[in-house]
């Protein structure tokens, strides 16, 4: 069982890990999600709090946009797989990571999708 955390902004992966105020958490196993995505609204953005949450929630995977090296290293040290610099909608990201095809730096977006997001 893997547990995924994505900082989000509307329909999209939040551009920055440290500025995200919405967090999506979803469990998946053997190429399929095993729970409905849960969205948590944070009181305020905080990269430290997000790292802490990832550890406390036993997160195994993080997909995010821009993340500072210090937080990336911390999460990797805590055995969390971090796929950063991903640009695109979070639903597509969830689909791709569950199927094992998401890579670091992937751009999952076509220009026509843009108006949905920002």
């Amino acid at each position: 069982m893997q547990k995924l955390l994505i900082p989000i902004q509307g329909d999209f992966i939040a551009p920055r890990f440290d500025l995200a105020t919405e967090i999506l958490i979803v469990r998946f196993k053997n190429g399929a999600t095993t729970s409905e995505p849960k969205i948590i609204i944070l009181e305020r953005p905080s990269d430290e709090a997000l790292c802490q949450m990832a550890v406390e929630e036993n997160i195994t995977d993080v997909v995010c946009g821009g993340i500072e090296d210090v937080h990336y290293r911390f999460l990797v040290w805590k055995k969390v797989t971090v796929l950063d610099a991903v640009i695109g909608g979070w639903q597509k990201a969830v689909e791709k990571i569950v199927s094992g095809s998401l890579r670091q730096g992937d751009i999952l977006i076509k220009s026509k999708d843009q108006r949905l997001a920002l």
Binding site: R16, G65, I87, S111, Q114, A117, L118
Partner: peptide
């Protein structure tokens, strides 16, 4: 990144959210 929203690529904290 041509065709992608500028803020998704230049990820700033300058109050340019959305």
């Amino acid at each position: 990144v041509a065709g992608i929203h500028g803020e998704l690529v230049v990820r700033s904290n300058t109050g340019n959210n959305k």
